[in-house]
Design a protein around this nucleic acid. Structure first.
Length: 507
RNA sequence: GGCCCUAUCGUCUAGUGGCCUAGGACGUGGCCUUCUCAAGGCCAAAACACGGGUUCGAUUCCCGUUGGGGCUACCA
């Protein structure tokens, strides 16, 4: 028996820069990354920018930023070097040419489809020459009418193949005129079956698909065609992508067959759904990663959350490794260890923001006060300690700690505990003020204050004493405890705020 | 409409014919803690879509129904 050397695992993520980096694409990237890393494979980033109308550099940059933020570094793909690109992009200069040849890493570049036009042209011509593809001159309007007619007849909408039989002279004539044209693949009528690593065997009747469009002209390839060529040229071994691509798979296989190219393995991931159970779209939900980044979610939480959308660890494996079988918290390295394509779910998963919030809160807890302070650009570490348990995401900080950092105005009624008389509260605050003032600065901490103020509270009632202090110090109905705030803001500020409160009640 | 995929608590899921009185997590409710809000601890409610088979026995296997989703472009 001949031992076949194990083929290198090469996977890719192929976003199109036509919008901000989509959360679904991010999850696909994660799964590809995990699969690559755990198999010693290569993770490739390819920019599918063939749609000139909608593609935009700013979206491309957002993809780079998002991937980097998540920690999903690609082994091959464009190099982000905006600095040199911006400063040295002199048109036509030898310098520019040099930059261009250096703007990617990997043996199979370039990794932007618009930079690969020569490659596609070669294959398109090959198909045209072999008469496996042909020019179609039908108008969009005719095509649309045809489609509608077929649908009302209860048939699968597909192109009639009318231009297949055009005579060479007719083709030449139309080619020389201004008639709009497109290149179609001659789809053989057969059954295409492929084995999906997650779903098992899936088959399609190509007779229902018809002659698909593969390019607008020899230098303007369309999605399905460009994908096939790139996946082949880049030696992609496994195509791991969203379920929305299963219907594209038979089309791509047909192109592979026409070109006599090998077929990669396929794995179609369940879609991430919004709360209406539809594919997450920008129109109806926060579908871009950017939004979560700006909202203050931690990349680690995002990674963990996305991994749990359609995948779950094996309780058995966890137990064997000495972990809790119910474990759900995993960092990137652990995911690389435990992830298993075989355990990926088949049905779509709803994006559950509550779970994300909880996970984010967990990751926030892992952070040291000091690191969190740094992240928030806040100097008072004690304040961080006070509000951190109340934060779901880092953007919550302002709402939680704002009034602690800088006093806010409030109504005197806030100082009143339940239905205690105003005079009682006023007197308690005055007494508290005396105690605070008498406390040495070195003893101005929770522990010491708890002995003095705590005693007063025991004598006069906890609510009657603690509530007004807390309200005076925080200016809010809900806040951390009074003594911890006092320690955090210090003696001087505490006294100042209590005095303000007393003034409010005295009016 | 056609094609393809899919189906366990509200949500994410464990489960691969008997270990299931269906387990966990989020969320929800209650209790404890408590000056408030959190955090934390404890407890509870909450699901195998339906109908046929196969089998001694089905959440688990098969078929159908129904539900859900995706695709159906000269977008990707």
């Amino acid at each position: 028996m001949v031992s076949k050397s194990k083929k290198e695992i090469r996977v890719r993520i192929a976003p199109s820069p036509t919008g901000y980096f989509h959360i679904g694409t991010a999850r696909t990237a994660l799964f590809n990354y995990l699969f690559a890393r755990q198999n010693g494979g290569v993770f490739i980033l390819r920019i599918e920018d063939t749609d000139l109308e909608r593609s935009d550099k700013k979206f491309e940059e957002d993809i780079f930023d998002g991937l980097k933020w998540l920690g999903l570094e690609w082994d091959e793909g464009p190099v982000i070097d905006t600095q040199s690109q911006k400063s040295r992009q002199g048109r036509g200069s030898p310098e520019a040419a040099k930059v261009k040849s250096q703007n990617y890493i990997g043996k199979y570049g370039p990794y932007r489809q618009t930079e690969r036009l020569d490659i596609y042209e070669k294959y398109i011509n090959q198909l045209l020459d072999k008469n496996l593809a042909y020019y179609c001159f039908c108008s969009k309007e005719d095509l649309e009418a045809e489609r509608q007619a077929m649908m009302t007849q209860g048939l699968a909408p597909k192109y009639s193949g009318r231009c297949r039989t055009l005579k060479p002279e007719e083709i030449q004539e139309k080619l020389h005129s201004n008639t709009s044209r497109i290149i179609r693949l001659k789809m053989p009528e057969s059954k295409i079956t492929f084995k999906d690593l997650i779903r098992g065997s899936i088959s399609f009747d190509t007779g229902l698909i018809g002659d698909i469009a593969i390019a607008k002209d020899t230098r303007t390839p369309l999605y399905n065609f460009a994908v096939v060529i790139d996946d082949y040229e880049m030696k992609i071994s496994h195509v791991i992508r969203g379920e929305d691509h299963v219907a594209n798979t038979p089309k791509q296989i047909a192109i592979q067959k026409a070109l006599d190219l090998p077929q990669p393995h396929y794995a179609h991931l369940p879609l991430i759904l919004d709360s209406d159970r539809h594919k997450m779209s920008k129109r109806f939900s926060a579908a871009s990663l950017k939004e979560y980044r700006e909202e203050g979610y931690l990349p680690q939480a995002m990674i963990n959350f996305m991994a749990l959308l359609g995948w779950h660890s094996s309780p058995e494996q966890m137990q064997e490794l000495g972990f809790s079988p119910d474990r759900e918290i995993f960092n990137l390295d652990e995911l690389v260890r435990f992830f298993n394509l075989k355990r990926v779910q088949k049905a779509g998963a709803i994006f559950n923001i509550d779970k994300l919030n909880w996970l984010n809160a967990q990751y926030l807890k892992f952070l040291k006060d000091k690191d969190l302070a740094e992240l928030l650009k806040v100097k008072n570490v004690k304040i961080i300690a006070l509000v951190r348990d109340r934060m779901k995401k880092i953007s919550d900080f302002q709402e939680l700690a704002g009034s602690l950092l800088n006093p806010v105005d409030y109504s005197f009624e806030l100082l009143i505990w339940k239905d205690s008389p105003k005079e009682v509260i006023l007197d308690n605050l005055k007494e508290s003020l005396r105690i605070f003032s008498a406390t040495l600065a070195v003893d101005f901490n929770q522990e010491s204050l708890n002995k003095t103020i705590g005693l007063l509270a025991e004598q006069r009632g906890k609510g009657e004493v603690f509530w007004p202090i807390r309200a005076a110090l925080s200016g809010k109905k809900n806040s951390p405890g009074p003594l911890e705030i006092a320690e955090a803001i210090g003696k001087k500020e505490t006294i100042k705020r209590i005095e303000t409160a007393i003034k409010k009640l005295s009016n």
